[in-house]
């Protein structure tokens, strides 16, 4: 009976999850090779050459990877730090409710908040002007649509950090880390040794697949970099959509090239992540 339900579940997963994904991927691949699409007239690797030689994709991929990495390092780092300091207080109902709030905000709303707060005409700029720290709107630094992606990183962190904080607090409880810390103290560990050898490694050990998946998610984020990013380099999803929406129909094929490369890279990363997990479980 159980096997029957499992088979039905697998069938649903294949029909709803794998088949549409696979078909879309095949369509994108054929489009990128000139085999389908209104402006295409047969097999060509011209679009691939164009993308790989222009360097825009590499730049965009590097920029996306860097933005996602910095945002993850800050989010996980701050969440760990807050967990170590306040794990008992954060379990309080009101505080944990406040932490859930940012998780309910769509990315586009967070990005608009960031514009209202960080732009040259935003709240910070106005407050600084009122207290006399700046004399002109131009003196306020570029915090959105800037070269370093400051606005993107800050908004990513504001969305992702509460999630990891709640996750770490949950793991702290379920993995009985407080008791393991007492045990480590009883075995002679000093407080800093306990944090270095037990608390942080254990929290990361239990959550690293989610950290890696969130990294992949940020790599493909769209709304936040669309609103807060600059013209060039753009993050991958923004670049792909820009290419797909061009008036020049030949550019659509280039958009599909980027989408194919991005999909392959993300799939490899995900497979590596889960195959490694499996091998750890088997080999110990």
């Amino acid at each position: 009976m159980r096997t029957k339900y499992q088979n039905i579940g697998l069938l649903f997963f294949a029909v709803l999850g794998i088949i549409p994904f696979a078909l879309s991927f095949i369509y994108a691949l054929l489009y990128s090779l000139g085999l389908v699409g209104v402006a295409n007239s047969g097999f060509t690797i011209e679009h691939w050459q164009e993308i790989l030689e222009s360097g825009e994709f590499i730049k965009s991929f590097g920029f996306s990877a860097f933005m996602a990495l910095i945002a993850m390092v800050f989010s996980v780092g701050i969440a760990l730090w807050l967990t170590l300091l306040f794990h008992k207080k954060i379990q309080h109902k009101t505080i944990s409710f406040l932490l859930y709030l940012p998780l309910a905000l769509p990315g586009v709303v967070s990005a608009f908040f960031a514009v209202q707060i960080l732009s040259k005409s935003g709240y910070f700029s106005r407050w600084f002007y009122q207290i006399g720290w700046i004399k002109d709107i131009q003196e306020f630094p570029d915090l959105i649509n800037d070269d370093f992606g400051f606005g993107i990183i800050l908004t990513f962190v504001s969305v992702v950090m509460p999630f990891f904080l709640l996750l770490f607090i949950g793991v702290f409880k379920t993995e009985r880390i407080a008791e393991l810390e007492s045990l480590a103290a009883s075995l002679g560990s000093r407080p800093n040794q306990i944090i270095r050898r037990i608390t942080i490694p254990l929290l990361l050990h239990k959550t690293w697949p989610l950290i890696a998946l969130y990294y992949i998610f940020l790599l493909g984020a769209y709304e936040i970099p669309l609103i807060l990013g600059q013209e060039s380099p753009q993050m991958l999803s923004v670049l792909i959509v820009r290419e797909l929406k061009q008036f020049d129909l030949t550019k659509i094929s280039e958009g599909y090239v980027v989408a194919v490369i991005y999909t392959v890279l993300v799939t490899i990363m995900t497979l590596f992540l889960f195959l490694r997990r499996k091998s750890i479980r088997i080999d110990g």
Binding site: E175, R176, E179, L180, S182, L183, A184, S186, L187, G188, S189, Q193, R197, I198, P201, L202, H205, K206, G284
Partner: peptide, 26 residues
């Protein structure tokens, strides 16, 4: 003084070898 808990509270991120070696590394 080492206090042993009611449950076999091992460090879940460490192997058997590393669990036993923990105090010596400290």
């Amino acid at each position: 003084i080492v206090y042993l808990y009611q449950e076999d509270l091992l460090f879940p991120h460490l192997t058997v070898f590393e669990n036993i070696a923990f105090g010596l590394r400290i």
